[in-house]
Design a binder for these strands. Structure first.
Length: 417
RNA sequence: GUGAGUGUAGCUCAGUUGGCAGAGCACUAGGUUGUGGUCCUGGGAGUCGAGGGUUCAAGUCCCUUCACUCACCCCA
């Protein structure tokens, strides 16, 4: 038997209903907030991700599906969506007509990690990205949109974590202070952190090895090194979040795994998913558009992990599988032929009608109707055909009514709606 | 990449010191010849993850390998 690739999965009937419910709820909310859909490819030139996410990140270093195509060009299955959206914004010179753009996009991402609860090699994200707005108010609006979505989906066990990573102006001073501390505590750091301390010092703050946490316990927080502009930006974000009654916690240690983030970063965390507690995350990336060859335009965005969100929503969501309105239990060949015409007519009228095609007796037909969860069963056999009537049974109340066979589609439609 | 646990029927799982491959649910047929959910009786269903080894004999012991799960790591 050929099995699917490790870390990949089929999303089966019975599950897809919930996926679509979440996607449709998101899309409709995002459009209320003025976002438009954009669709970008699942593959890009490898260079795009190296330059945006950062060479020293785990994603680029060891998680990307990168391979040469038949001509030898290095291409990568996207590990995230933002880089492509930015590329598209630049490539189509969207900033020329209107630099202010709000996009959302839904699709699969690929990272070759060891699979775990809430972590797959192909996973799905809903992204929202805003270009051209520097105001902290847009940060707040984005978080408000995210929190609203979660509350619409009845997800309550969620915490908003906030941090600010500053800008190229304030970051050097912070890194200097950090470097001093790391130098003096060098022998306490794990080997990963020793490497990180040189290449990507911010990541050391995020290490979970106890000895590193201890060594870095007195580490300066980047929020204490912010330049006046970044401070004002972050203060406004916090004030406005409070005004909007959005509870949040400041997480000075939160460093995102992608290098392009600046200023505001945030993460939605839950305790319901085991070790993978981040259901959504995002932040500003004010320098990325320019870094990828576009004009200097500020930007901010977030990504929601749909797989993880599905798991949480499934915990308290009732069945979404659609059940037949009516099941026709037809006995004998002639009845089945008539029944077939009827279900086709009913389907065209928007009624969920079904039947059995194998010529079973009434009892197994009733069993099948019950299994499908049909609200009504229409019983028709030779006897009924002769009398020009059929029996419509309400499966819950067990009431049975005799209805005439001519214009039965119309009759059923009236009865059950 | 590292560690731990688990692979037996469609599903959930038993399987003793190595000795005929099992149960419940589901499916199916009947009890009730035209009425579902409960009950009773029968039936079908398996490469015991795969490959190799030890043995008269392996689901059981040994080796290899694959997959799944969880954790580390990282992130959504």
């Amino acid at each position: 038997m050929i099995q699917l690739i490790r870390g990949f999965k089929d999303i089966l009937p019975g599950e897809t209903e919930l996926w679509r419910y979440i996607e449709e709820t998101s899309v409709s909310l995002f459009e209320d907030f003025g976002f438009q859909e954009i669709r970008v490819p699942v593959m890009e030139r490898t260079e795009l991700f190296q330059r945006s996410i950062g060479e020293e990140t785990d994603i680029v270093e060891k998680e990307m599906y990168t391979f040469p195509d038949r001509k030898g060009d290095l291409i990568t299955l996207r590990p995230e969506a933002t880089a492509s959206v930015v590329r598209s914004y630049i490539q189509h010179k969207m900033y020329a007509k209107d630099p202010i753009r709000k996009f959302y996009t839904i699709g699969p991402m690929f990272r070759r990690e060891r699979p775990q609860k809430g972590r797959y090699r192909q996973f799905y994200q809903i992204n929202a990205e805003v270009f051209g707005i520097e105001s902290p108010l847009i940060d707040v609006q984005l978080i408000l949109m995210l929190v609203t979505l979660f509350s619409k989906l009845l997800v309550t066990d969620i915490e908003v974590h906030m941090n600010s990573l500053g800008c190229p102006k304030c970051r050097p001073k912070f890194q200097e202070a950090l470097a001093g501390l790391m130098l003096s505590a060098k022998d306490k750091l794990c080997k990963d952190c020793r490497r990180r301390s040189e290449k990507n010092p911010l990541r050391v703050l995020d290490c979970k090895v106890p000895s590193c946490r201890e060594a870095m316990a007195g580490a300066p927080a980047i929020v204490d090194f912010l330049c006046p502009e970044c401070t004002r930006h972050f203060e406004t974000v916090k004030e406005m979040l409070e005004k909007q009654n959005i509870p949040f916690v400041i997480d000075k240690r939160m460093v995102r795994g992608l290098d392009y983030y600046t200023r505001t970063t945030f993460e939605l965390q839950t305790g319901l998913l085991g070790a993978q507690n981040a259901v959504a995350g995002g932040g500003r990336y004010d320098n990325l558009v320019e870094a990828l060859g576009g004009p200097a335009q500020p930007a901010i965005g977030f990504a929601i992990g749909i797989d993880r969100l599905v798991e949480i929503v499934a915990l308290n969501k009732e069945e979404l599988v659609k059940k037949p309105d009516v099941f026709i239990a037809a006995l004998g060949e002639e009845s089945m032929n008539r029944a077939f015409e009827w279900i086709c007519g009913l389907n065209l009228e928007g009624i969920r009608a079904d039947m059995d095609f194998s010529g079973k007796n009434l009892k197994p037909l009733m069993k099948r109707a019950d299994k499908l969860g049909a609200e009504y069963v229409l019983i028709v056999g030779e006897r009924e055909l002769e009398e020009g009537s059929a029996i419509l049974r309400n499966m819950q109340t067990k009431d049975q009514a005799v209805i005439p066979i001519n214009s039965i589609v119309k009759n059923i439609k009236e009865k059950i709606r």
